[in-house]
Design a binder for these strands. Sequence first.
DNA 1: CGTGAAACCGTCGCCCC
DNA 2: GGGGCGACGGTTTCACG
Lengths: 169, 169
Amino acid sequence: MAGSKLDEIDRKILAELQADGRMTNVELAKRVGISAPPCLRRVRTLEEAGYIRGYHADVDSRELGFEVQVFAMVGLVSQAEADLSVFEGKCRDWPLVRECHMLNGEVDFLLKCVAPDLSTFQSFLTEELTSAENVASVKTSLVIRCAKDVPGVPFEVLEERVRQLERGL
Amino acid sequence: MAGSKLDEIDRKILAELQADGRMTNVELAKRVGISAPPCLRRVRTLEEAGYIRGYHADVDSRELGFEVQVFAMVGLVSQAEADLSVFEGKCRDWPLVRECHMLNGEVDFLLKCVAPDLSTFQSFLTEELTSAENVASVKTSLVIRCAKDVPGVPFEVLEERVRQLERGL
DNA sequence: CGTGAAACCGTCGCCCC
DNA sequence: GGGGCGACGGTTTCACG
């Protein structure tokens, strides 16, 4: 099962770097309770194994002038794999689309979009998204406010889960 | 207007740190074309001004055993501000909820959730979310796959916008 | 904003368990 | 296998021009 090859120190490293990705290695080593060299080796291993995909500054999009955030629910005409891939490729090319998730249920895709203002978004919506080949329907909802936006996963839940698994060895 | 107090170097710094949050300051300085000390001063200023909210390692949730990702659309009974705040507070307390956006339109909130497996999510859904006070309806959609998930904002769009504004001085 | 210097950190080789 | 020690080169971060 996934995650089973990580020990407690690895999970603490991931939790710390998820909370503060610019932490120095010596500070990280101090927090997880080992010295710097093995700590750095573990971080490199976690990066190469794909547990850590990268590090990003979390920029404030509204401060930067992207005042509009929109979720778009997209239905397609054809859900054949080739047609899904074509649509996903377009989403990757559209800079205003930041996330593209394929869902089960009534709607095929959920897109998270940002834009500097409503008219920019409307141009994108009418000229690109809605008029794209194979798109059957688009329903959009403006984000009024964001009450929570934390990255990654809840490590508390992971730890609890590990403890349960250990009890059931 | 927001973002107008940043010059081109500041925007390049933000773009670089969004792409690679662990870049060293000397590398960053080289890329934006200034020397290290003023570059670090700019980064600190951007952090204090709130343009940079933090730095995070981007961990692979599926590799870590969070195999279930769900979007939940929540309708409330009352949309009075006090009741909205209460619900948002609960979302902040629920570790499985990673994002909570208030939307316009038919649904009041869109939640992004993660869970180790379906039964964990179902317990949360039935025992916590659906049975929470003031919650009228919950519709959930499982994420089948994620075609795109890039953090932050498209700086290409910002630069284009700045050029347009400069032409219209 | 740049230069120089001092303190700190990332990183490696080696030894240890 | 992993962790610790010591040392070198690069980096962060001052004070100052």
